[in-house]
Design a protein around this nucleic acid. Sequence first.
DNA 1: GCCCAGATGGGAAACGCTTTCTAAAATCCG
DNA 2: CGGATTTTAGAAAGCGTTTCCCATCTGGGC
Lengths: 390, 390
Amino acid sequence: MPINLTKKQLRNTGKGVESFSSVSSPRTNSSDRRRPGTVSIRDVALRAGVSIATVSRTVNRIPTVNPELAERVWKAIEEVGYLPNTQARALVSGRSHMLGLIVSEITNPFFPELIQEFESLAVAQGYEVLIGSTNYDPARTESLMRRLLQRNVDGVAVMTFGIEEDLVQKLVEREFPLVFVDAGPDLPNIHVLKVDYAEGIRQGVQHLAALGHRSIAFISGPLSQRSPKARREAFLKSMAELGLRVPPEHLVEGNHTMEGGIVAMEKLIALDTLPTAVMCSNDMTAIGALHALFRTTLKVPEDISVVGFDDIHLAQFMLPPLTTVQMSCKALAAAAVEALRAGIEPDHSKARRKEWPIPTRLVVRQSTAFPRGSLPARVSAAPGKRGDAD
Amino acid sequence: MPINLTKKQLRNTGKGVESFSSVSSPRTNSSDRRRPGTVSIRDVALRAGVSIATVSRTVNRIPTVNPELAERVWKAIEEVGYLPNTQARALVSGRSHMLGLIVSEITNPFFPELIQEFESLAVAQGYEVLIGSTNYDPARTESLMRRLLQRNVDGVAVMTFGIEEDLVQKLVEREFPLVFVDAGPDLPNIHVLKVDYAEGIRQGVQHLAALGHRSIAFISGPLSQRSPKARREAFLKSMAELGLRVPPEHLVEGNHTMEGGIVAMEKLIALDTLPTAVMCSNDMTAIGALHALFRTTLKVPEDISVVGFDDIHLAQFMLPPLTTVQMSCKALAAAAVEALRAGIEPDHSKARRKEWPIPTRLVVRQSTAFPRGSLPARVSAAPGKRGDAD
DNA sequence: GCCCAGATGGGAAACGCTTTCTAAAATCCG
DNA sequence: CGGATTTTAGAAAGCGTTTCCCATCTGGGC
């Protein structure tokens, strides 16, 4: 064992390690087929004249190392430019410190905002994030999930809908930490972010009603998915609470994209009884609706009010600035990261919580106003040409 | 060493393993602190009654395995639900099959489009992507780079600007595959995507000039960065070619965000000599400019023409649809992935190329038109109140 | 002076895989 | 039919860490 000997010798030189300071290149180490320039814990150990165990302990700040020794090790680390290899760490510790984040559509501006929040929180906790966009394709979701598992992520936040049940089943058996939005099986280590659609949407409906609107349409998202359905339900419930009728032609299905919003709005415009206000299942839809309206002679908000959902950054820059229901992506991201940590780190404080409420609230901007022909205080009873549909 | 013995025994059971086939749960294996439900190559080997080496060879499709045996192994893999552990693979092979992608701002819609392209190409080649957004902060860039290195990514595409030179230097020593946009050191394994700003921007300027514009302003990006500077240079050059003067007050600096575009446009609006057309360094800036104009009585394109750069998806949905210079993010992503592969996979075909041209071209939509008071065929000499400033 | 704790650091196993080396079986050839 | 050659599969050596266990050293109490 010549290496061993060398090490012993090195150690016995004690403090005389400085004599090696002139050795500038760390690549003069043992191994063969390693990528050149890679520095391993062994190089540090050699340089500092200690064992790799000590280096490891120093790096992980385990208190049983002599401070003096530790300092020598840190110096050596600095000198050789050592970066611990995360893969090896993951292999031995069983934890990769990577989280998966699955979103439905990265090109929908809501998600980059969410991703950014999620990522910065995760990084602050020492996690890396693997991002996947499913584009609403269940097959993609599944292959994505498989890839994430193979990469040994410590947990996955599924910020989308329509995941295969049996895949979940498999993961559940492993007690694999998962986070869903809106709904998920009630099983150990499955956390659910419960978005309070009802509250925000009720605020929206009541805001419109208070302005004098009675005929309010709703452009939904793809109804094959849970969250869009939940949003529509919330709308219908709020309308019913106020005793407002929603004729079926005022419920049109979009697809949460701008194009979908345009098409849906055009359908509404073509109706005989144009609603005086439109609520949309998300902001992109609302933006599409604004565009469709802009191409006609109808003015927003004078002729028709529009309300969005999400409160993406873009919303406030619309013309007019969009009144919308805010679903804080900060809150969403924070809850997701916390929930995953709870599942991953055994002694994490909030480990027992299973459901995480996400509040929503209306943000009033300038895309909503009194319907034409009615004023707020003095309710002029005369219905305009597209007045009260009740 | 009782543990050691146990292991040896397990291994020595050798071929007599078929007797274990009835053991249905894969979690009855040796290890202690492994996450429950994790299946390793050893479980497959036990199940199939072969050595782990054979399983490995089967999985990697190495042709020296007896087809009959291979089939048995595949069956066992299926039965126990084996997924190779990527970390372990990476550790031994030295290649992680992960790529880093650094963008400047994930909330700028151009980048999600780019990310999506990049990711799908990378995945098709068997790579995972780690995404990082720098938000124009060099410190963030550096820590991001460090994180990526620690994760052992096989290469990084830096689709942003302002990376620390000395960090690059360190990587270059390792012959670490890197891709930059516009400019980068001419060193082995550093690839550069050369965007042909000149062509697209010239087309834009000539389009405006052909319509009769003589007074064209330019809203740039942050001039501390290379790419925005390059775009501005290209604009100035194209103007000079046509003999058109650009007064300094017609060159205003934005920051590649919508807010920046609004502020910049407001500066232009406040001028005595309003330009008849504005070119913008990117689409978000142009969108901001449109918004600023919309708040005034000025009409686009009747009173002022606006041209963007990037051709993000949103551009065609603007009101009016935005005339813009297209920089194909498909081309950008494809070149980046190819370049990285060239640096990573020794026998990759295009390994020798160092610079990758990215074409740009004008896409004419409806935000550009004749300047007020001038018509294309019959040039009415009478200048309007904000006519030709030349 | 001796024995026993209590620190503290090193040796070595283990994580799951790839790959080389080696040995056994199968094939060929004279 | 025996020896040489070719398949083919297993054993084992890592990859870069962490961590358990044990050895050494120090100091204190008798």
